[in-house]
Design a protein around this nucleic acid. Structure first.
Lengths: 134, 134
DNA sequence: TATTTTACTACTAAATTGGTAGGAATTACA
DNA sequence: TGTAATTCCTACCAATTTAGTAGTAAAATA
């Protein structure tokens, strides 16, 4: 039941930007990639899912880059992970309703409670909780 | 962050046996497979991970099968899922220690807390919570 | 000895993961 | 005006994982 690199690297991108929030400048993705020792090309593939959620102010072209739109404590870890990974639900049937064992399933109650437990935990953590100067 | 069919079907096998616990007989895997509309051959592949953990009394040959060794409320959902899926830790570094970003990682604290949250929840649910007559 | 069942090993197709590669669009600046 | 820097977008790919199937050996019963 693992979080993939997509979600983990998304958190790293966000945390990197959070620590530069007060600098109020556009941060190049390549700066993040080299500081965090990650592939620029792979980060480029992860960032649209975050950008779609309106997490950033962006600027293209020379001297372009990304900065956070909101204050770090206004992003929950849950929304960052859901944006990058999709739903964190432990079983598909919580979100999709396509399971053909549904009528006979005894486990669904536990899966829903587990899903709630995970979501509640991650909803109550924000980007600020990841920051250095905390 | 999904539980795979291995874990889900393991829970189904255990729940099926739990509901027959009072009958005190060896239940053939084929009986479970047909009642639960799952492949016998696939269940055969899942069951060794449970059997290794000493969950069953087994008997081979004609009239053989499986029965639970303990009472249903003496199996936690956590131990069943860990037996079938392996660790449920949301990131590998919680169990393995091989991550090369370890010194710079800001997220590890959150992952550990999440892991604890999940484990605590599943430790406090037992097979009995899945049973019909509850 | 024949049948039934667990136990064990090998194989496989499809999906997912974790990337790489290349180029178009946009902007700053010399 | 042109060049470099950067985001944005699409296509590709190798390795791993998932979700099984197939076949057979070993054990127990009748």
């Amino acid at each position: 039941m693992r979080i993939s690199t997509k979600g983990r690297y998304a958190l790293i991108i966000m945390e990197n930007l959070a620590n530069k929030y007060h600098e109020d400048r556009f941060v190049r993705l390549n700066e993040i990639a080299s500081e965090e020792e990650l592939s620029l090309k792979y980060l480029e593939k992860i960032i649209p899912s975050l950008n779609n959620k309106d997490f950033f102010i962006t600027s293209r072209g020379s001297d372009g880059g990304y900065k956070l739109k909101r204050k770090p404590n206004e992003y929950t870890i849950l929304e960052i992970l859901e944006a990058s990974e999709g739903s964190l639900a432990p079983v598909e049937c919580i979100t999709s309703n396509t399971c053909n064992r549904k009528s006979m399933c005894k486990s669904i109650g536990i899966w829903k409670e587990l899903d709630d437990t995970i979501n509640t935990f991650l909803e109550n953590k924000t980007l600020e909780d990841l920051m250095e100067d905390k």
